[in-house]
Design a protein around this nucleic acid. Sequence first.
DNA 1: AGTGAAAGTACAGCTGA
DNA 2: TCAGCTGTACTTTCACT
Lengths: 166, 166
Amino acid sequence: MSATRLDPIDRKILAELQADGRMTNVELAKRVGISAPPCLRRVRTLEEAGYIRGYHAEVDARELGFEVQVFAMVGLQSQAESDLSAFEARCREWPLVRECHMLNGEVDFILKCVAPDLSSFQTFLTAELLTSPNVGSVKTSLVIRGTKDEPGVPFDVLENRLRQQA
Amino acid sequence: MSATRLDPIDRKILAELQADGRMTNVELAKRVGISAPPCLRRVRTLEEAGYIRGYHAEVDARELGFEVQVFAMVGLQSQAESDLSAFEARCREWPLVRECHMLNGEVDFILKCVAPDLSSFQTFLTAELLTSPNVGSVKTSLVIRGTKDEPGVPFDVLENRLRQQA
DNA sequence: AGTGAAAGTACAGCTGA
DNA sequence: TCAGCTGTACTTTCACT
């Protein structure tokens, strides 16, 4: 794993910025135990190396009027690579589709969607997704309640793993 | 929808911070077309009102050694509220489970999991999830490739909607 | 607008291969 | 010795009143 190219301070930086991405550099430096300038240099390096893909404010979807969250399992008629990528390209265009993952097993894709209300999701479902070329089966499941939604990765798992390898 | 309590500048602020959460306040102010001090006041207000739940660095899970991503559909034997919340509490404890959503339909929960490799996920699956009390059926699907993974909500959809209501 | 703090730069010293 | 990282000193920019 490439995480071995990172020293413990780098991993601490990533963990801290994942938890609070708007922390000042001096606060971050204090937490990871070095002074501010090298800390900033490490952050820049981590950004350029792609370990940090970006920073995002986590907004409350419900408060903003996106009351509905739906998972859609999509099966395609043809799984030829060109057909797969055509479907993927369409998913990237649909703003209500926030995530799209290609899966193994009976279902080809899982889509995580948001919508202001049920009726606008239904409109998307019938007018866009179901009428999309090559789409075979679609099974949708409404999210009744959200239990856990942690962004990113569990850094404690990573640390345990590296400790055992040493 | 409570988004009507927000004016267009507030929504622009949220959209910009969702796209780049580490932007400086002056840069943000410039983009939304007001001067820095009122912009900062708006951001603080949005944070305190809960529209902004936090800021996070988006880290590259693969680069950090989390090679495997899995969706698990879980059916419980009892759907009594106390049994549901007991399972939810367990999900919150498992670090490999990043998301847990309660669904309608045949399956009770969908779990989004990450793991360093297949074998450590299998260990989690057999030693933790499958042996957990009240767990009936578990169907897992490996993510073959990620197609789209946009955090947050589509602000353009929100703007279109508000425009039509007016 | 003005003050105090943080970001970012330049440079010099330290440490390990 | 030399590369790489660190910390101090300093300027510029930003946060906040």
